[in-house]
Simulated assay, not measured.
Amino acid sequence: MYLCINGDIMEDKKINPLLTGSAETMLQSFYARAKYSRKKNAKFYDAKAIELVGKIDYDFSKAEKDSTMSNGVIARTIVFDELVKDFINKNPDCTVVNIACGLDTRFYRMDNGRITWYNVDLPETIEVRDAIYHESGRVSTIGISATDPAWADKVTKRGKMLFIIEGLSMYLTSDENAQMLSIIRDKFDNATVLMECLAKKWVNKERTEKSIQDTGAKFVFGADTFDDLGKAADGFRCIKNDDIIRGMTEIMPILKPFRKLPFLKKITQKILIFEKA
């Protein structure tokens, strides 16, 4: 997995990110949010994604055709936005750590003028993000792997903490996910975690999302409930086993009569909500 930029990043030049593997999936998600935001009555509007799609030199044609990937990204964005906004409303001076942020712009939709927000991702990804967003102050970046404990020391504003893990756990092994969660458990107090997990049914079946398969990324981990995290969840207690079904019904109302069917719950992405015990 690598990333480089050809030439200087200038306002009048296109950004040319060359990515492989899971790092490339951030562009697929980014494009899906931009495309959805152009729709009438969209549940969220990602102005940054719309602005920047035209500035990135990348072939989005596969993402354009991959409705499975796009619908999953949009549904989880709708539900994550709801959950994050609720947490911030209850804790207006909280600190949010967005792990594997990619080009995510949730801070700009959630900001209440008081929160502190850290975007964490691999150094090469943060290099691109910094060139685009130039973030500082209450929203800033940390370029370190999520499994490296060193990132925790760079989160200097503490207090009530919310950790967002979106679009990452399925690309990490069980041991890597355990390492990431152990950093949160050992380094922070007052920690609440929102962790997206692939349904176990889809592990090793990345071919169902063609644009993801073509990046070379592999789905290697899944969990349907908090209990499925096993020892990785030691030191945490479950708040709720959530999922993205209500997000799916927002973009596909035809699913509403079926939203409580066990089959639908079995195949959709999960959002596990838990806190430090």
Rank of each mutant, 00 (worst) to 15 (best):
T20L: 13
E135D: 09
N204C: 06
D227Y: 12
T215Q: 03
N16W: 05
T141A: 02
K65M: 14
N91M: 05
V193T: 03
M69K: 11
L122W: 09
T225E: 07
N91V: 01
V79M: 05
D59C: 06
Y45I: 05
N190T: 08
I74W: 04
I15N: 08
E176P: 04
V53D: 13
D12S: 10
A233L: 03
V203M: 07
D59R: 12
R185L: 00
A150Y: 04
I88E: 00
I212H: 00
K260R: 14
K40M: 12
K14P: 03
E127M: 15
A34Y: 01
Y36M: 14
C238Y: 00
K48V: 07
K13V: 07
P149Q: 05
K266W: 14
F221K: 06
D8Y: 10
E127C: 10
L3R: 13
E11R: 07
F274T: 05
I144A: 10
D81C: 05
F107Q: 00
T95H: 07
I254T: 12
F30Q: 13
K154Q: 15
M26P: 12
E64H: 14
A42R: 05
A100M: 08
F263G: 13
Y36P: 07
V53G: 10
G230V: 00
M69G: 13
A34H: 03
E51D: 14
S140P: 11
L264E: 02
D148V: 01
A232Q: 01
K65A: 15
T20P: 10
K154S: 08
M170D: 09
Q179F: 08
D228P: 05
L264W: 04
A191N: 02
K14G: 02
Y118N: 07
D224S: 06
N89L: 14
D93H: 11
K43D: 13
K187D: 15
D228R: 05
S29V: 11
I165S: 00
M195I: 00
S29G: 14
V120H: 04
C4M: 14
T125Q: 11
M161F: 02
C238W: 03
I50F: 07
K256G: 02
Y2Q: 15
S211A: 14
Y36N: 06
F107C: 00
I165R: 07
K276L: 02
L261F: 09
I212E: 09
S136K: 08
S67C: 15
Y58S: 12
K270E: 02
D46Y: 00
D243L: 12
M69R: 13
V120S: 03
D59S: 12
L168K: 05
R237V: 13
I56W: 01
D242M: 12
E51N: 10
S22Q: 13
P123E: 08
K205G: 08
A47Y: 08
F258A: 12
P262R: 02
R246W: 12
Q213N: 13
T105P: 06
D57L: 09
A23E: 13
D214Q: 12
I183V: 01
Q213I: 06
N112W: 01
F274A: 08
Q28P: 09
K231F: 01
T156V: 06
M195R: 07
Y108H: 15
L272R: 07
N119P: 03
T147L: 09
V120A: 04
R158E: 13
